[in-house]
């Protein structure tokens, strides 16, 4: 075994011949053909569009350039590194990505960032005041409103809105108006208790 040749096997002779001849072929394609290909591509494949966007997130102003396809969720997580907001299903079925836009709870995964100029976005990072947690965050800790914690930022954002909307008169009402936030661990009773304790 030790006497085996030490050449990495991924570069087989056949691979080398194939790839080098492909590169050689590329080099001899006349520029006119390449230009024609690019021209056709421009006709059939729409170019991606980058748009300027200014908005406020957690009381801080931002001026950014975003892809027209970017959702608010991707803007928060991928560009601004505000990773508290979670991507669950990315199709509006789980509620993990819930944030507030102009004070109302919405799904950031179904919100195109380009629709948000001059809006005020609040994420889970914007709830606490310095080291002092928001009462709902305290209540979730107090009442074990989570196990794995993945849905929790969405649950808390939704819970804050639920209290604000006044939909907390009974356990049944809380459950109905929190039904857009799915918890795979099944911490629903803890979540309901936390919301009740804040609503009081």
């Amino acid at each position: 075994m030790k006497d085996q040749p030490s050449l990495p096997k991924t570069f087989s002779r056949r691979f080398f011949i194939k790839s080098s001849s492909a590169f050689a072929a590329l080099a001899v394609i006349p520029n006119s053909v390449k230009a024609f290909y690019n021209h056709i591509k421009e006709i059939f494949v729409p170019k991606k569009e980058i748009l300027p966007l200014s908005l406020r997130i957690n009381e801080k102003p931002y001026s950014l350039d975003v892809d027209s396809r970017s959702t608010l969720l991707d803007l928060l997580r991928e560009i601004l590194q505000l990773t508290g907001t979670k991507k669950g299903c990315d199709h509006g079925q789980c509620g993990a990505c819930t944030v507030h836009v102009n004070g109302k709870r919405v799904l950031s995964c179904l919100t195109l960032a380009a629709t948000l100029p001059e809006t005020e976005v609040t994420t889970i990072e914007g709830l606490a005041k310095g080291d002092e947690l928001h009462p709902m965050q305290e209540a979730f800790l107090e009442h074990d409103g989570f196990q794995c914690g993945y849905c929790t930022p969405g649950q808390i954002m939704s819970a804050v809105a639920c209290v604000k909307e006044g939909r907390t008169t009974s356990v049944g009402e809380i459950k109905e108006f929190m039904s857009g936030n799915i918890c795979r661990c099944g911490a629903y009773n803890g979540i309901t208790n936390a919301i009740q304790s804040v609503a009081k």
Partner: peptide, 8 residues
């Protein structure tokens, strides 16, 4: 739907 979706 859900409250979040109804807001949108």
């Amino acid at each position: 739907a859900s409250p979040q979706i109804r807001n949108m």
